Measured scan of single mutants.
Amino acid sequence: EVTIKANLIFANGSTQTAEFKGTFEKATSEAYAYADTSKKDNGEYTVDVADKGYTLNIKFAG
């Protein structure tokens, strides 16, 4: 089991951190699914992958 950390960075400057656990593939998939659901309210996003994929910096356009 691994933990994927997602740092969500919103257009207004606020941030949120979420953690997803499971296999690398499952946790990563859940992090992207979470970003997709947040996209409806926060606009399109880009992802900067860090820490060999264990940290995702997800920046929303607003």
Score class of each variant (00 low, 15 high):
E1G: 08
V2T: 06
V2H: 07
T3A: 06
T3S: 08
T3G: 03
T3Q: 05
T3W: 07
I4W: 01
I4T: 00
I4A: 00
I4G: 00
I4R: 00
I4H: 01
I4C: 02
K5Y: 10
K5L: 10
K5Q: 09
A6G: 03
A6L: 15
A6Q: 02
N7A: 05
N7H: 13
L8R: 01
L8Q: 01
L8D: 00
L8N: 00
L8K: 03
L8E: 00
I9V: 10
I9A: 06
A11D: 06
A11E: 07
N12C: 11
N12H: 06
G13Q: 05
G13F: 05
S14A: 13
S14C: 15
T15H: 10
T15V: 14
T15W: 10
T15S: 11
T15E: 07
Q16T: 12
Q16V: 14
Q16F: 14
Q16M: 14
Q16S: 11
T17N: 07
A18K: 15
A18S: 09
E19P: 02
E19K: 08
F20V: 01
F20E: 00
K21L: 07
T23N: 08
T23D: 07
F24H: 06
F24T: 04
F24L: 10
E25W: 09
E25H: 09
E25R: 07
E25D: 12
K26C: 11
K26Y: 11
K26P: 01
A27M: 02
T28S: 08
T28M: 15
E30F: 07
E30P: 01
E30M: 14
E30T: 06
E30V: 05
A31C: 07
A31Q: 00
A31T: 03
A31S: 03
A31K: 01
A31R: 01
A31P: 01
Y32L: 13
Y32D: 01
A33L: 10
Y34P: 00
Y34R: 04
Y34V: 05
A35G: 03
A35Q: 01
A35S: 04
D36A: 09
D36V: 06
D36W: 06
D36M: 08
T37S: 15
T37P: 03
T37R: 15
T37G: 13
T37I: 15
T37Q: 15
T37C: 15
T37E: 15
K39S: 13
K39G: 08
K40Y: 10
K40N: 10
D41V: 13
N42F: 14
G43V: 04
G43L: 04
E44R: 07
E44N: 11
E44P: 14
E44G: 08
Y45I: 02
Y45C: 03
T46D: 06
T46S: 10
T46E: 09
V47W: 04
V47H: 02
V47N: 01
D48V: 13
D48Q: 13
V49L: 09
A50H: 10
A50V: 12
A50L: 14
D51C: 07
K52T: 08
G53H: 02
G53W: 03
G53S: 03
G53T: 02
Y54Q: 06
Y54D: 02
Y54L: 13
Y54K: 07
T55N: 03
T55P: 00
L56S: 00
L56W: 04
L56Q: 00
N57F: 11
N57C: 08
N57G: 03
N57M: 07
N57E: 05
I58A: 02
I58C: 04
K59Y: 15
K59A: 08
K59D: 04
F60T: 00
F60I: 01
F60L: 02
F60S: 00
F60W: 05
A61G: 13
A61T: 13
A61V: 13
G62D: 08
G62W: 08
G62R: 08
